[in-house]
Design a protein around this nucleic acid. Structure first.
Lengths: 186, 186
DNA sequence: TGCCAAACCGACACTGTGTTGGTTTACTGG
DNA sequence: CCAGTAAACCAACACAGTGTCGGTTTGGCA
């Protein structure tokens, strides 16, 4: 694990070229329609070099996604350390602002063209940490889980629409809508 | 158009074989990992015969999905003809019951493995016809659209979870959750 | 500056794709 | 009941992408 942290300048450049190229291609078409060949062509990297780094396109995509996942994890950690009565709303707003700041990358990663698994993982992480269950106390556990799924998928859909549409609504508005729709009125 | 309605018994059998085979395969893996070859093998249909019917796997899938779309369209037409003050809740419940009745097919078509486009089309159809906008009267149109997207995606996620989980909750419960979360409290 | 890891290159066997021309087979209408 | 025909079968094709080699440059760090 520690060894991998020490990447030579050359390999870093190659990996970045591959990652950037994939993002560019994903803006045009779904992953299934992208070939290793054209990716390498665009990245100006030899095809065999690609295979030296990743077994397939899926792995490359997951590598890219990992950065965002890591950021969210770290941020959640920080935010939840200091106790805050209204933590839920604050976390959601914080994440929305992050998304707005990294719009160009995330509009691709969050698009329906991209990887649904990542999107669910991302939102599931947030709602899981927040422990939505405590917000839904008193209700039937099976029903609470269903509401949870509605909230996660609904948030994904809203965020996708937000990132795809112009002009862009302010992150605060989006956060407010998510909060009001995902959580039961108190 | 009229000509296509008259299908010989043979072609009907072939098409059904292909459709059933695809449903079976989709239960195992996503569309992207399914090849025309293995589909034909399972369907016991010659590969060139497949191409005589469909240009690619995507078209076959859309053909299957069309049946459900047609049913929903027809049902909506019927239900919305007779005016009903509480039409929204009734439509949603009706659709949930249909899904429960055709569980085996729809659990595949609705799965994340399958086609997201279909799922959005299906739910978008319902919410569009219902004209959720009227439910959201008085609010900012941009915000109304965002809530709409939340509602559609949320419903999809909930339905996916519902179809995938055991034991199965009654359709009435699911309909109630969708109604309460998608529509603003009056 | 010399070393060596990492990128490049060309070639390989393999699998899947669409398409085509010719054949068999099984419905259907007379 | 059987002839005609539409539809399914079959074999073979050119082509594109995959994953994996061994051998060769090349760039950067010590």
């Amino acid at each position: 694990m520690a060894r991998e942290l020490v990447e030579s300048r050359r390999t870093q450049y190659t990996r970045r070229a591959l990652r950037d190229a994939l993002i560019e291609l994903l803006a045009d078409k779904p992953l299934a329609r992208i070939t290793v060949r054209e990716l390498c062509e665009r990245a100006d990297v030899n095809r065999s070099t690609f295979y030296a780094h990743y077994p397939d396109l899926d792995s490359l995509l997951r590598d890219i996604e990992e950065d965002t996942i890591d950021w969210v994890n770290g941020t959640l950690q920080q935010l939840l350390e200091r106790p805050d009565p209204d933590s839920v709303g604050r976390v959601i707003e914080h994440v929305c602002r992050y998304i707005a700041d990294n719009r160009s990358h995330l509009r691709v990663l969050m698009s329906p063209q991209a990887d649904l698994r990542f999107q669910q993982q991302l939102l599931g992480l947030i709602y899981g940490r927040i422990d939505l269950a405590t917000q839904l106390q008193g209700t039937d556990p099976q029903e609470a889980e269903m509401r949870m799924h509605f909230a996660v998928s609904g948030s994904i859909g809203l965020l996708q629409h937000w990132l795809a549409s112009e002009p862009t609504a302010p992150p605060e508005t989006v956060a407010r809508i998510i909060t009001t729709m995902a959580l039961p009125a108190r």
